[in-house]
Simulated scan of single mutants.
Amino acid sequence: MMLVVLGNTEVSLIPGISMAGATPELTKLTPPADAEYLFYERPKIIDAIPVTPEGHPTPAIITKAAKELAGFPIMVVRGGTYMAPLVPHIHISSHVGRDFRKEKALPEAREIMERAIILGKELNRLNPEELVIGESTPGGTTTAQAVLWALGYDAKTSSASPKNPQPLKEKVIAEGFKRAGIKEGELKDKPLLALEEFGDPMMATVIGIARKFKGKVILAGGTQMLAVAALLRAMGEELERFTIVTTKWVIKDRSSTFKETAEELGVEYQYANLDFSKSRFKGLRDYERGYVKEGVGAGGAAWLALKRGFTERDIEGRVEKLYEKLTKSP
């Protein structure tokens, strides 16, 4: 089973910090549009799939391709977004993460986790051996880096752009730490406070589900899932039953510390080795140049398809067909 947890944070509205939308304002629509695209030919909430400012397609196209090939079920979870997706979903919260430079990011973190814990318990009744959890959270790599720094990890998160806006992220995080009156590592023994001060609703939702689900948990995402793993560890969870599954583009990203931070945390990771270098479409070929990289559980969805006997080439071929449909749509 696969969950896709949707979250928004006001951090995505800071110009230049998120590539998960054509403009900062449109990042408000990205999570529900991503979820809708998994089930429809096009999203319902907007008449286009989410794209980067340069026009590169959402990684939901990979998740959709893998789902169509392998036929695994996807359940959408609204962790905290501006708007609900126009597909059947589980509602946890409508609380959006605040701009942590100005105020606490998520004072509702405990409430969100408590609701998500109920979902985790109920999922056990279905007896799945493992649960794959992906996410769509514009601005989430910045909240992730802030949480990792607060917990004492010298981490750098990735970006949907080949030009990772690390200087801007670090400036924003420094302003947030100043507002909160803390230094790096000062909240290493206070994970809930780190989540409240700098996190986002996706993190709180995934943590609540994962803590009470008894089986193996696949954290389907890139550097954002490192923050989730770090919070789980700080909350006393053993990470042996957790694996982060991502894409090769995250692993190869030299502007982030994915591998180093994963090793420091002691969390296992795997990746899907997709390759769009020979694609007919520039929007897909540019994935090989460092655009997009991961999101909407793309790596985990590909991993599920691979487990069911499909190949990376099968997934790439289905992505090509889906992209071609989009280019021909009115």
Rank of each mutant, 00 (worst) to 15 (best):
G181H: 08
P15S: 07
M1N: 03
A180K: 05
E135C: 04
A234V: 06
G140K: 06
G295Q: 13
K325C: 07
K104V: 00
A105V: 00
V267N: 12
H56L: 14
K64M: 08
I315V: 11
A116K: 02
H91E: 14
R318E: 15
G181W: 07
G283L: 11
L232I: 05
Y269D: 09
T63Y: 02
W303C: 04
P85Y: 10
G181C: 03
I90N: 01
T27N: 14
G299F: 10
S256N: 09
P15I: 01
R78Y: 10
N273P: 05
E264D: 10
N127P: 00
A262R: 06
P53L: 08
E41T: 11
M203V: 07
V132N: 11
V96D: 07
A35T: 06
G7V: 07
A227K: 07
A298V: 01
T223S: 08
R241N: 10
L284P: 13
A65Y: 01
S256R: 03
D189F: 03
I133P: 02
A204S: 12
E54I: 02
L86A: 06
L151F: 10
T223Y: 09
A227S: 14
I49R: 08
A105R: 00
A262P: 14
D99R: 11
P138E: 00
Y37I: 02
K178T: 13
D253Y: 08
T141L: 08
P24I: 03
N124T: 08
G297V: 02
E294D: 09
T63P: 09
K64F: 10
I182Q: 01
L168K: 11
S136M: 14
E68A: 02
E175D: 12
P85E: 09
Y323D: 01
G139F: 00
G215N: 07
